[in-house]
């Protein structure tokens, strides 16, 4: 009885549409390497996804929460990260003369944003604000599948659907009208490892990278989780046996 009530409550909580699901939108799904209790990130895919972000998205979208040092998670070593950071310029200062100055970034720096502020970003994008992507995979219901679908679902509006100027039709977006022009068409980038560059493949790689950015501790979380659940299961069994034994003289 008790476990039944608990299960019903937990289920009703976890499956209620208030905590997920995006209404009228049917999302494409994919078997992500990071899903499931033993899930891990695909380092090669994340490196490719980072390349896509760099070459396609970074012109408009910031990732303010990510520091260059974090790219160690993608499999880069220290000197590679140093070299990578040095390609970016960040503002520092004030120096001894009281002036702000630009210098090459170091691994401890956060990724610089493409626009100085939100107003500049709006001014450059038809009034729409390109959201920061650091947490985007957790900030949308069913994040990874949503991003994957959004990136690969642009199409011509069906007959009779009016698309205002500066808007684009995307069935994966709630309301179907999105201010972001189609970012990926397939073959947008060339990967060193020769991986596929179809629009689906590139979208999946980018999603992998964005999921890591939103939840960088996912792998260690699941690893500890497996150990914790294993330990606690044994604890449950032994505490039950102890309870049975102690209660034997009452029953």
């Amino acid at each position: 009885m008790l476990s039944r009530i608990g299960a019903v409550l937990l289920f009703s909580v976890l499956s209620s549409p208030a905590w997920g699901g995006s209404g009228d939108v049917a999302l494409k799904t994919r078997d992500w390497s990071f899903s499931g209790p033993f899930g891990t990130f695909d380092k090669a895919a994340m490196q490719r996804g980072f390349q896509v972000y760099n070459e396609v998205c970074a012109g408009c979208h910031s990732m303010k929460l990510i520091a260059f040092r974090n790219f160690a998670d993608l499999g880069y070593n220290k000197s590679e990260i140093k070299a990578l950071a040095a390609q970016y310029e960040v503002e520092d200062g004030p120096n001894d003369d009281g002036d702000m100055f630009m210098r090459p970034a170091i691994p401890a720096d956060r990724m610089p944003a493409p626009y100085a502020n939100d107003n500049a970003a709006r001014a450059g994008n038809n009034g729409a604000l390109p959201p920061d992507l650091s947490l985007i995979a957790k900030a949308r219901p069913n994040g990874p599948n949503y991003l994957y679908s959004l990136l690969s679902s642009y199409e011509d509006a069906p007959n009779g659907k009016e698309v205002p100027d500066g808007m684009y039709y995307n069935p994966a977006y709630p309301g179907h009208l999105i201010a972001m022009p189609q970012p990926l068409y397939g073959d947008d980038v060339e990967f060193i490892d020769g991986a596929a560059t179809s629009i689906e493949a590139v979208s999946a790689d980018l999603t992998q990278f964005l999921m890591w950015a939103a939840e960088p501790k996912l792998e260690v979380r699941k690893r500890i989780g497996v150990a914790a659940v294993f330990f606690l299961s044994i604890f449950v069994i032994f505490s039950y046996l102890a309870k049975r034994r102690i209660w034997a003289d009452v029953h």
Binding site: L14, R221, L232, V236, S239
Partner: peptide, 28 residues
């Protein structure tokens, strides 16, 4: 001991949610 058993079950369920569905009860 009966409470210890209850606590064990509680912690097991909590661990499942914390480590595998940490955002399921939050809002994106």
């Amino acid at each position: 001991i009966k409470d210890v058993f209850g606590i064990a079950v509680f912690l097991l369920l909590l661990a499942v949610v914390v480590f595998f569905f940490p955002n399921a009860m939050g809002h994106p």
